[in-house]
Design a protein around this nucleic acid. Structure first.
Lengths: 230, 230
DNA sequence: ATGGTAACCTTACGGCGTAAGATTGCAAGC
DNA sequence: GCTTGCAATCTTACGCCGTAAGGTTACCAT
């Protein structure tokens, strides 16, 4: 039995701010990451934000990697999913938007989300739901797998680019000035305007449509039509 | 005028190994990254490999970021390109394989390649060539831009996953055992076999086919058919 | 011989993740 | 009420990291 309103246990600063908890630490970490980026995120800075020493965090998370993993789980778990009884094809489309939304809501964290193996229970549950939607198309396992995989590649690539790609601030050490781009790389210059954030939404939708169309065709004539080889 | 066979200029160790050069440093850096990964790559380790002090590298590259940028340029520049006079659609397919090959040849470096803005001259030249191939389809600028962009999303996402995704060693801190996956995530388990490296090639090809088909359709009836949407 | 300079090395600083261990303050047993 | 145990927290320290600052070496043209 626990008494409900517990005071802090130890430490000078601890008294002034209430006890730490995985919940509080995760929330602060997410804030910090979205404010200043993944690269500058450190346990020391997180401690500063929380009003505790860096090492106090290690009582609640055995390592920084475990904390980041918990953040991954959290953003996946909190993302609302499309209803399971939707039209299977439209559900697939909705799941694409759903995954992308994770990136839009947490752009700085998304690199971590996209690049790490989804093998926590929470992540697997999401993955399972997505594969289920493809499974409901009634295609053979191989076609199902290839369609799902290719679709995931697209959605992940798109969201990665939207959150940290070409349109974001300069990452090259000495960028090429626009005038030179216009002169020496005319094809890039011609499509450049469509690479800006205003166009993300429509470009994403256009790519999704390509997959959705392909999926509809595969469903209409099952066989080795769309996926499979050669 | 320079005498042809120059001895090293300074330093005790320098005498034993010949002079440093951007070329040698880049080659050693690529080796080191592919051997031990991007995360553990440091200027100190690179110095060790080269037989010099870490700071000597800074004579040839103003920062670690500049060095990594040079590596990006190098792997892009060295990648052979498909002939410019190919059938435009097949050239687009070949360019997809071409970009993917950069990842297959340098899997550890590829995260850096994929996630950094392509705004060096070398990278822009590659980008320009790719956009040119789409431009040769004869579609309007908007459709060209959207098709190119979506195609790039797919190729990048696929290559990222092949080089550092699900199939690679466990990244989660405490992975879910296979038996539990089979029990609790049956849809994932069902397609799991197709996620293994043996299937990368065919899955990549299947996804490319979806885009190539969409591109052919867009070329046959120009208008707002495939892209644009909504 | 002499001065300039490119190439290289040494030292040092502040920041990182985290191992090891000290400290604090509540809860339970006597 | 005192002691003991223990979870939560803090302190210190270690070996990494990128790199700023400045010193040293060995060649070159003069």
């Amino acid at each position: 039995m626990k008494t409900p309103g517990k005071p802090p246990r130890a430490g000078a600063k601890a008294a002034a701010r209430g006890p730490l908890s995985p919940e509080r630490i995760e929330a602060a970490a997410l804030e910090l990451i979205e404010e200043h980026g993944l690269e500058t995120f450190s346990t020391r800075r997180l401690g500063e934000r929380l009003g505790c020493e860096a090492m106090s965090i290690y009582h609640h998370f055995p390592s920084k990697a475990h904390l980041l993993n918990a953040l991954l789980d959290r953003v996946i778990a909190l993302q609302p999913r499309p209803a399971k009884d939707m039209d299977p094809v439209e559900r697939i489309r909705a799941l694409g938007y759903c995954y992308r939304q994770i990136g839009l809501d947490h752009p700085k964290l998304f690199q971590y989300v996209a690049l790490h193996r989804m093998n926590t229970r929470t992540a697997l549950a999401f993955l399972n739901e997505a594969v289920e939607a493809f499974g409901n198309l009634g295609l053979d396992a191989e076609t199902t797998a290839r369609l799902f995989r290719a679709y995931s590649y697209y959605v992940t690539g798109a969201t990665l680019d939207e959150t940290s790609g070409y349109a974001k601030g300069p990452s090259a050490t000495d960028p090429v000035p626009d005038a030179e781009v216009a002169r020496d790389f005319p094809f890039v210059a011609a499509v450049g305007p469509y690479f800006k954030p205003e166009h993300f939404e429509r470009t994403f939708a256009a790519g999704l449509d390509i997959f959705i169309d392909a999926i509809r065709r595969a469903v209409r004539k099952p066989g080795r039509k769309t996926a499979g080889g050669r």
